[in-house]
Computed example of a mutant assay.
Amino acid sequence: MKPNLNGINVVLRSIQANDLDDLFEIYGDIQTMEFASDPVFTSKDTIFQMLESVAQLEKAGESFEWAVVEQATNKVIGTCGLHSFSACGHSCELGCLLNSSYWRQGFMTEALGLLLLHAKTLGIVKLYADIDEGNFRSKALFKKLGFNVQNGQFQRSL
């Protein structure tokens, strides 16, 4: 089981079924999902399907996903995770999604900082991020976190 990761303003914890409304607010928002790999969710049933997929991938050790919870309100405001582990387990992809109402407030910077520290404890030495060309906010965030563009992909050594 993956640990909770506690910061000053956010906590990263396992996604739970009772997060349904907060998750739908995130995944059902056109602005939030503009550069996501999935289309905008049109019903809460899609959230249940996502939760099942997350559980299966975590059980298989293929992916680890956390809810990003704002400490002041206990509201789920985003998700972040480690995915696509290399065969030797020393590198993986880092992904995130934040409710557009919480952009530019430092929440995801803090959340990903916690995740970077945790990834290092797992023996990960290199992280990748797949960011769409037009996603300037994410590009700025990952550069701030020490990622560099190499071969068209954001990368960072730990």
Rank of each mutant, 00 (worst) to 15 (best):
Q150R: 13
G61A: 03
F154P: 01
C88P: 12
L115M: 03
T46G: 11
R137M: 06
H83L: 10
S91W: 03
R104A: 11
G123H: 00
T32F: 03
I8G: 08
L94E: 04
K126Q: 06
S63W: 13
G78P: 08
N99R: 08
L94F: 09
C88E: 15
D29Y: 01
Q31K: 14
G106V: 06
T42R: 14
N18W: 11
S63H: 13
L23A: 05
M33R: 06
S53C: 12
E93T: 10
D130K: 10
I30T: 13
N99S: 08
M50Y: 14
S37L: 13
G7E: 08
S100T: 13
Y102Q: 05
F147Y: 08
D38V: 04
F85I: 02
F41C: 01
L117Y: 11
G106P: 01
F107H: 09
F147K: 03
I15E: 02
C92F: 05
I30A: 15
T121H: 06
R156D: 01
Q71V: 15
P3G: 09
S91T: 10
S43I: 02
N6F: 09
E70H: 08
K44W: 00
R137Q: 13
V10E: 07
S86H: 11
A119D: 00
Q31N: 12
F85E: 00
A111N: 06
L117K: 14
R13P: 06
G146I: 07
H83N: 07
S63F: 12
L82H: 01
K144L: 12
V54W: 13
A111G: 06
L97I: 15
N99M: 05
Q105T: 02
G7S: 08
D45W: 05
E34W: 12
M50Q: 13
L122G: 01
A17Y: 05
Q155K: 15
L145C: 15
V11T: 13
D29P: 07
F147G: 09
Q153F: 11
H83Q: 11
A60V: 05
E133G: 08
L57T: 11
Q71K: 15
Q49T: 15
D21G: 06
S84R: 10
R104N: 15
R137I: 05
K120C: 04
A36P: 05
N6V: 12
C92Y: 00
C92A: 00
T42F: 12
A60F: 05
C92I: 01
E110W: 04
D38L: 14
Q31E: 15
G113V: 00
Y27E: 11
E25A: 14
E133S: 12
V68Y: 09
G95N: 01
T73G: 03
F35E: 04
D29W: 05
R156W: 09
S43A: 04
T32G: 01
H83T: 10
M1Q: 12
I15M: 08
V54P: 09
W103I: 10
H83M: 10
N4M: 13
N74H: 12
Q155L: 14
K2I: 15
I30N: 14
H90K: 15
E52F: 11
V10Q: 08
E110M: 01
I8T: 11
K143N: 10
E52K: 13
L94A: 06
L5V: 11
I124A: 03
D22E: 03
G28Y: 07
E25S: 07
G106K: 01
M33C: 07
R104I: 08
K139N: 02
A60P: 04
G61T: 01
